[in-house]
């Protein structure tokens, strides 16, 4: 069972939940940007073991199914068509051998996900199939997909589809995400923290899987924001010397030397993963204790 890449789109990579327990060695976690869309995609095609999917950015890939397959599309609305017929998102769809799935431009959202029954079969590297493009590690030959690549899938013979479907999420161009303050909130003045939690920031076109750069007001610091390197998580908000925050995303470095004013609540990361350049983001404070109550 396999899928042929006819056109890859600007950045299409194989991803799963990410690569863990190697960050102490300097290896980035990678993994999908939008964990909610990823989980939905796998669930729709009956995958339960954190199978690898394709993550497409802004413009999707055109793929030919070399054998029959069940697939599901989630995340950004990329106007996909199977042999010219529009495909609904957030439900399992059957493709026959030889059919072509053309995934187009994202009408809303930023990242689309394609899961196939069984998952994409690339080698497990350090426990994960995720692509780390910067380290040329994992995924399909450690890189973004190219035309002509053939991706095998791990599908067993066939699968009996279920009626499972989800309401596609609506991606707004103005979003609010909840933030747990710290761990280095003390590097900022009270006025600076207030700016952070009240201002509107715009997602900069310079954003990528490593981090979302923002345009907006500077946050007032007590002195500098250089610190002795400290660990980073998906969602850490660091403030470099210029005073404008950067939100670190799936391809974040493992440690960094800028003070972090807060950390985005994990439940709100999918909103950021789907934010497009020019979208507006606001931050709302939530205590770590209150965040625990959400579990």
């Amino acid at each position: 069972m396999s899928v042929l890449v006819k056109t890859p789109g600007p950045l299409t990579t194989v991803q799963d939940e990410g690569r863990f327990f190697y960050q102490s060695s300097g290896i980035r976690p990678s993994g999908v940007m939008d964990g909610a869309a990823y989980e939905a995609a796998n669930a729709l095609v009956g995958n339960v073991k954190g199978e690898a999917v394709l993550e497409m950015t802004f413009l999707g890939a055109t793929l030919e199914f070399q054998s029959a397959a069940w697939f599901a599309l989630t995340g950004a609305d990329m106007q996909a068509k199977l042999d010219g017929v529009p495909v609904e998102r957030y439900r399992a769809v059957r493709a026959e051998a030889g059919q072509t799935l053309a995934v187009g431009m994202a009408a809303t959202g930023c990242r689309g996900y394609l899961a196939v029954w069984g998952g994409f079969d690339v080698p497990l590297v350090m426990g994960s199939r995720s692509t780390d493009v910067s380290a040329k590690l994992g995924g399909f030959e450690g890189r973004a997909l190219k035309a002509g690549d053939v991706l095998p899938t791990l599908a067993a013979d066939d699968w009996t589809p279920t009626d499972l479907c989800y309401e596609p999420p609506v991606y707004e161009s103005e979003i609010t995400v909840r933030v747990v303050p710290g761990p280095q909130e003390e590097y900022f003045t009270a006025a600076g923290v207030d700016t952070f939690f009240s201002a509107a920031y715009e997602i900069s076109p310079n954003s990528d899987r490593m981090g979302l750069r923002l345009d907006g007001p500077e946050i007032e610091r007590i002195s500098g924001t250089d610190i002795v390197s400290d660990g980073i998580v998906f969602g850490s908000i660091q403030v470099p010397s210029g005073g404008v925050p950067i939100i670190l995303m799936a391809d974040h470095q493992t440690a960094g030397g800028y003070a972090k004013i807060g950390t985005v609540l994990s439940f709100d990361l999918p909103k950021l993963a789907q934010a497009r350049p020019g979208d507006v983001v606001r931050f709302e404070k939530i205590s770590a204790e209150d965040a625990q109550k959400l579990y």
């Binding site: 863990f20 390197s229 400290d230 493992t254 440690a255 625990q292």
Partner: peptide, 22 residues
């Protein structure tokens, strides 16, 4: 416990709150 990142000055411990509370 999902991950540990030791640095010069700190140990970051990632966990699953559904399994172990803060």
């Amino acid at each position: 416990v999902r991950e540990m990142i030791p640095t010069y000055r700190s140990l970051l411990v990632e966990y699953d709150p559904a399994v172990i509370s803060m």
